[in-house]
Write a protein that binds this DNA or RNA. Structure first.
Lengths: 267, 267
DNA sequence: CGACACCTTGAAGAGGTTCAAGAAATGTGG
DNA sequence: CCACATTTCTTGAACCTCTTCAAGGTGTCG
């Protein structure tokens, strides 16, 4: 469980200092906590609509048909699979990727706890990308027809679903900007800042993170070769902006990173 | 009006031959045709759900609050504008683009008749991109709260809205693949094939098209400089794959284009 | 401890960009 | 309707960034 009350997961270290974007409270581990899906979930505020009445909340909780554990390296779904459910990530970390006919593939996103995965499958009732766990993970399986059914009755849920999809569209717009107009170091800086921001919203440090993906996966996401990613990291280290020890990254100068992102190379 | 019964618009030439993906029938220009929004619209099959009962169709038609004409070069909405409606393009051609803080901008899409624009605005109730008409255009204004209201009652509409958003997500996945892993000529070939396919679905030729955008806009979309786009066009001409006269493009060898897209440069 | 996956770094090369100039098309105002 | 200004497009040459190829180092897991 993604719970600040338990010892920090082997993944990223939770920080206890204040200033989080959302207020994550420790939840005692009672039998109820296990049975009742969402109302005691720390991620509720990330993956559920706000402002529900208790009755509505009860009903929305019933959307979750099951939990599913996915081992590191296993796929949650893959291109061509029949679509039936969206997945809310409870713990763990995923990548999604699309493949071209001639076999190249492109990482289209990295998803962490509280994020929703599977939206690509709605149009054609088949998934068009692969979702692979980058660390042991657990997801809530939410059958989409149940979501549709209930969102006809609970306005807040309907709105929430629309927002989640729109958010994904906006995110992808941002990635297009990155891929279409940024240089290697700008891309990497933007990538790090984005990860940090999302981790921070989950209660982790803004100054430290553990990458769950390889240089090659980062490169695929950023439209670069793994060597280029590695060199960009080394450059940041030389410039005193970060410390890097394999996948452990410590940020020494956030401002410098921000400056790199929107400077258009004219320092 | 986008009507095959009327003389071909000054834009792309409609073809009368069969084999279209959707069956567009000529509609006589009666007063009714003007008054009733969707039921006689040639684009119905593109922007409306299928399988509605006549009563449902009546209700869905009422979503369209107004029509709006946009002159070439004018903006339909821009980054920061309050979001209230989606827009269905009746005639004309748009581009959408996002801008980074330091002023670079990236074309994120080109939209043609029958496509829906404005989905980016749903998350934050503000638009995050600009939508600019590349030729005189007319759109149907569909207030989003009305869409939400009605899609609670008409299942087919609800499903349709979800599919439209999911389709946009999948489209953007494809653009990410293009931007992240293709070479200049592959990008241009993929771009042309995509335009041709969409135009063909609207009854236009598969072998000819008129670009509504500049080389610079194509370049922005494809993550290339305008000179590179121009050179790629010239290369295609040299290779006998297309004829190009400014914005008029005639396809001489569709197969060659397809081969370029998924060949990974190893001919 | 050895095999394997992952990461770093160097050197050479290719593809795309930048800068520059000129040609072609388009629009505007007289 | 024509002349001129402006925008758009093409092409060349030099340059730069990223890729490719190669080798060696580091870390991890059975």
């Amino acid at each position: 469980m993604f719970d600040l009350a338990t010892p920090a997961p082997a993944t990223n270290q939770a920080v206890s200092s204040g200033g989080h974007r959302i207020d994550i409270k420790p939840v005692p581990m009672t039998p109820q906590t296990i049975k009742v899906a969402c109302s005691n979930c720390n991620l509720r505020e990330l993956c559920m609509p706000l402002g529900l009445t208790p009755q509505e909340l009860d009903r929305v909780e019933e959307i979750v048909a099951a939990r599913r554990k996915i081992k590191r390296g296993a796929t949650l779904f893959r291109n061509g699979d029949r679509f039936s459910s969206l997945f809310a990530i409870r713990t763990g970390f995923f990548k999604t990727s699309v493949a071209s006919e001639d076999g190249r593939d492109q990482v289209t996103g990295f998803q962490m706890a509280g994020e929703i995965i599977g939206l690509d499958g709605i149009v054609n009732e088949h998934h068009t990308c692969d979702a692979i766990a980058l660390e042991d993970a657990e997801v809530c399986v939410m059958p989409f027809d149940r979501i549709e059914e209930l969102s006809r009755e609970v306005n807040a849920l309907q709105r929430h679903v629309h927002k989640i999809m729109s958010r994904e569209i906006v995110r992808e717009n941002g990635v297009m900007l990155l891929l279409g107009s940024m240089r290697a170091e700008e891309r990497l800086a933007a990538f790090l800042l984005n990860l940090l921001q999302r981790l921070h919203a989950r209660g982790f440090s803004q100054l430290e993170l553990v990458l769950r993906m390889t240089r090659e996966e980062i490169g695929s996401y950023l439209g670069l070769k793994l060597e280029t990613v590695s060199r960009a990291f080394s450059k940041f280290v030389d410039d005193g902006i970060v410390e890097v020890k394999q996948r452990h990254v410590k940020i020494l100068d956030t401002e410098a990173l921000k400056k790199i992102v929107n400077s258009q190379q004219c320092l």
